[in-house]
Design a protein around this nucleic acid. Structure first.
Lengths: 152, 152
DNA sequence: CCCGGATCGTTTGCATGCAAATTATTCTGC
DNA sequence: GCAGAATAATTTGCATGCAAACGATCCGGG
């Protein structure tokens, strides 16, 4: 009788891992695309980060908001939005006031400096989108937008 | 003569910022899609993070690699890959050895435990991709893959 | 052979991000 | 009107990520 190495030596489908190519995984590709976009953003708007800019943009769009709601509208959890709000306040771009109607709430609003920076940066932000999508045709851009919205 | 509030009160094109809707920006949508994927991943494979799994996958695919090259192949800079390697080594999933040919280099390789975990997790990883792309048709999946590759 | 540039790894500092626990406050059903 | 559930904000701990500066080593040209 010929020797078998171990009980696990039965080779079911051969090389489970060889078929898993990292570069084809959607999560990995998403990460690289996000990295490229972040680099373009930082180059164009060095004053604030992407999440900080998203916070300013949402406040400009909606007016003053409670900190937690602001976090939900910018896709940040309570811990993350707190840090972002703290840093923006330290830069004088936003301010926080107590909500007289709900003593748990902290109302966040743009300062004049924050609004001015945002208004100044909007053209740059549009250029960032353009640079990010530069490799795509108009049809591809529309397809991407539609598909990503289904995944968000 | 009627009073003007300030010199800035000339209203050039009206509401620069009103046209900037955060939810339509490609960077913001990308971030939300990435968040959703991360949540699916963490739910399916709690033992390691996405970047840690990417590291194991690349080592399984390519064999032992120097730490910096491993970082480049997994889209992490030198500082980031160092932290990931440290944590994986602490878990006993990889090991590092000095390169005899180049004393600057650190060779990173999978341990048996690391390879076993990766092989076990591959079906889960494929399920993660499936769950992430679940809202899409086959045509949309192919379109997304093609478009993202142009952007990466 | 040797010097200047390139590469490898490390460290520090800052900024997300998420999970989980905690406190304070508000709301809701009975 | 009041106990329990829900919500708001904070804090801690861990894990990416990037930028910049650094020392050690290697490599190529003169």
């Amino acid at each position: 009788m010929l020797a078998r190495k171990t009980v696990t030596d039965y080779a079911p489908a051969m090389a489970t891992g060889k078929n898993y190519i990292l570069d084809d995984q959607i999560g990995f590709v998403l990460r690289r695309v996000t990295q490229r976009h972040l680099a373009i953003f930082t180059d164009a708007i060095p004053e604030v980060t992407t999440t900080q800019f998203a916070t300013l943009a949402k406040l400009a769009e909606m007016g003053p908001l409670s900190q937690n709601l602001l976090g939900r509208l910018t896709a940040m959890d309570a811990a993350t939005i707190k840090g972002v709000v703290d840093r923006l306040r330290k830069q004088g771009l936003i301010e926080t006031t107590a909500d007289p109607d709900d003593r748990r709430r902290l109302t966040v609003s743009l300062t004049d400096a924050g609004r001015a920076l945002f208004e100044r940066a909007v053209p740059a932000a549009q250029a960032i989108t353009e640079r990010t999508l530069a490799p795509l045709s108009d049809e591809e851009r529309q397809a991407l937008q539609a598909i990503l919205l289904k995944l968000a």
